[in-house]
Amino acid sequence: MFEARLNTSQVLKKVLDAIKDLLNEATFDCSDSGIQLQAMDNSHVSLVSLSLRSDGFDKYRCDRNLSMGMNLANMAKIMKCANNDDTLTMKAQDNADTVTFMFESQNQEKVSDYEMKLMNLDQEHLGIPETDYACVVRMPAMEFARICRDLSQFGESVVISCTKEGVKFSASGDAGSANIKLAQTSTVDKEDESVVIEMQEPVTLTFACRYLNSFTKATPLCNQVQLSMSADVPLVVEYRIPDLGHIRYYLAPKIED
């Protein structure tokens, strides 16, 4: 028996919005410790890794490890039927081929349940090594989303250069070129608005705008985003989900042809 309850549906709606741009379907691996999801986008350029800890749920029970393959468009249809402040309960029997989403209104006067067929997805899991990154940037998630959106008008790629002084985002194309520089913030009183750079070595890497823009669908989950970079390895874009877990996106850099 698997059962996981959240007192507000909103957080799962946001999580789904953060992954459904990149993934058509995905397997939710449920265990005693929580729910994990790892999946590559269709073109195998990026990887999504989601972790929701069992202790972040308002109720959590998982007697046996369970892999639930879900069509995310269908899951989105169901999640659309929940009000943000409805209590959400996901339920499945052991070895079941369906999952049930139950939504309860705050006053308990409306209870809806939606049953969805599970899929057998043959998904490859990749091992992600623990890495010390040359540069780690923490910045407001809204600011990162804005920069990705603005720069994608000018080219298909964004060059991210990080030094101790700051981080620079650049794009160029037929219309011209664009450069956005962010310096480390000096004040520490507004943590959510700060730009913090931890640098061992300066790094310059090139990434496809399209994927960065998809990652920013996670912006509503968290005030800050963390970018981790080293030469010639995938970028990690991490959004923490307060009290529940995190979503990490890995993006292969573009390399000189």
């Binding site: 073109s43 496809a208 390895v233 292969a252 850099p253 573009k254």
Partner: peptide, 14 residues
Amino acid sequence: KTKQGSIMSFFAKK
């Protein structure tokens, strides 16, 4: 000119 590689060339299959 830059070329987009696959994420699978960085992380090994489990």
